[in-house]
């Protein structure tokens, strides 16, 4: 099983605070982490490698400091890592990002599977995984929370997907691209040996020139069909909570039920 994992470095939003005056995010000093969903993707790939052999390669597109995320992935056990970093990639929307990643995937050589997190916690789009699958013309299986069976010889995989109404069990032919949800596994911590190995590892940086068959007009801001016109804070919720107090629990519950009834949502 040759598996490629696409990861994104994101700000650790558990540490993001909102500036009460301007309503904007205060990102100063906020540490960057691997997108949590991507850690599930990485863990799943490592488990498949342990079971079926092969290698795990990790790709990330981002600024030069995204190399830290790749080093962490190597410390967890990935075999190889590649950083896509070039000013020409700046301003990429999901289409251009998927296009760029797909060209990088091709450059890494033959693969059986690509695994991505279902979405990144900063952009929240969930579109890059399907975009990469579309660019490469392979089957996509999104929102996977369990791999039921993998048959490398037969070239088939059976997964469970988490949908609104329940779990869908799908069989597909390899190669496939999976996007995974949180419940699929519990990611491991990097081992000491892994950290040492990762610190010494050579992580190549690929620029637009390195993925040369890619059409330069389809990269970065120029290659992106969408454009952000404004960014603002969401409207705050009006007013403060009405705190309900009463002599007894039953009396308080009665008042609350009355309030809810008066809002005509039941």
């Amino acid at each position: 099983m040759n598996i490629i994992v696409c990861i994104k470095q994101v700000p650790n939003t558990t540490e993001v605070k909102i500036n009460p005056e301007t309503g904007t995010l205060m990102r100063e000093g906020v540490p960057s982490i691997i997108n949590p969903f991507d850690t599930y993707a990485l863990e799943e790939s490592l488990r498949l490698r342990e079971k079926f052999g092969g290698a795990v390669a990790v790709i990330s597109m981002g600024p030069p400091q995204a190399v830290e995320a790749l080093r962490e992935a190597l410390a967890m056990g990935a075999d190889r890592a590649y950083l896509l970093s070039d000013r020409k990639f700046s301003g990429s929307d999901t289409w251009a990002t998927a296009y760029t990643l797909a060209h990088a995937v091709r450059k890494t050589g033959p693969f059986d599977m690509i695994i991505c997190g279902k979405q990144a916690i900063d952009g929240d789009t969930g579109q890059v995984g399907p975009g990469v699958a579309g660019q490469l013309g392979i089957t996509q299986l999104t929102y996977v929370f369990k791999i039921r069976r993998l048959d490398p010889e037969g070239g088939t995989i059976i997964v469970e997907r988490l949908l609104e109404e329940g779990r869908e069990i799908v069989e597909a032919k390899i190669p496939v691209l999976l996007t995974v949800v949180k419940d699929i596994n519990q990611p491991r911590f990097p081992s000491l040996a892994g950290i040492r190995r990762a610190a010494r590892a050579d992580i190549p940086t690929w620029t637009a020139a390195d993925i040369a068959p890619a059409d330069p007009s389809r990269l970065g801001l120029d290659g992106s069909p969408t454009r952000v016109v404004t960014i603002c804070s969401p409207p705050p919720r009006a007013g403060k909570a009405e705190m309900i107090q009463a002599d007894s629990v039953d009396a308080a519950a009665a008042v609350l039920a009355g309030r809810i009834f008066s809002r005509k949502v039941l």
């Binding site: 939003t13 904007t24 900063d122 929240d124 016109v229």
Partner: peptide, 11 residues
């Protein structure tokens, strides 16, 4: 985006 912390308008 950003877990609902910002709203972006996109064209």
């Amino acid at each position: 985006a950003f877990g609902g912390n910002i709203m972006a308008t996109i064209i």
